[in-house]
Design a protein around this nucleic acid. Sequence first.
DNA 1: CGGGATCCGTGGCGATACTG
DNA 2: CAGTATCGCCACGGATCCCG
Lengths: 120, 120
Amino acid sequence: MTTRRGDLFDPACPTRRLLDRIGTKWVSMVVKLLAEADPEEIRFAELQRRMPGVSQKMLSTTLRQLTRDGLVGRRVEPTVPPKVYYSLTDLGLSLEVPLSALRAWAEEHMALIGESATSP
Amino acid sequence: MTTRRGDLFDPACPTRRLLDRIGTKWVSMVVKLLAEADPEEIRFAELQRRMPGVSQKMLSTTLRQLTRDGLVGRRVEPTVPPKVYYSLTDLGLSLEVPLSALRAWAEEHMALIGESATSP
DNA sequence: CGGGATCCGTGGCGATACTG
DNA sequence: CAGTATCGCCACGGATCCCG
């Protein structure tokens, strides 16, 4: 970025930063899966299996970022084939609330908007 | 709750598409400004002035997309220096609800997160 | 004044390969 | 099984020029 981080609207606009995170391709999906599965916890491969099309790299990156942000909890079982369980933290769960509201809006209204503008 | 597992993971996934839109750099800011200014309506230059750092291209692109999606209304005054006023449609206003909830969450919790992680 | 067209850098993201 | 490392594409977005 040409500008230093956090100069323009950062102090006044944490929303921008939040959207930068949850707007990335896989975050909302991970959060939803974890929200549904919590507190059973899910392992990496299971998560990947439930997310058709995600690469290990992006899933790993996404999870690392969410973990770093304190939204996702990570528990490692040091067995010989290591097992890593992921779950939502309380913070992550609290984010799920407004996020699911957004999801509801999307499912309600996006159908209309549908194909007029975007071309994925 | 709609427990269909497919909704978020569909190729047609509405949530994904919504986040693709509102996740873009300036959308949330435009929506917020329009929500605050409605129904006075704002002109292009005024909008740009209130958004430090936005280029006219991105503001124009953002507005065009939002207009096409039916979230933003556009009114042109055919004076000699043309005046174009923007406002939120009812659909846009309805999006403002979950969006402001997300904003509230961000303002409440992003401060903590912001310190630990700087690069999305 | 509003905003389309163009050039171009950056980085998000996928594919592949390798480690512990 | 659960990652990390490397390469490369291309869409997002910034700067600039120009037109109605």
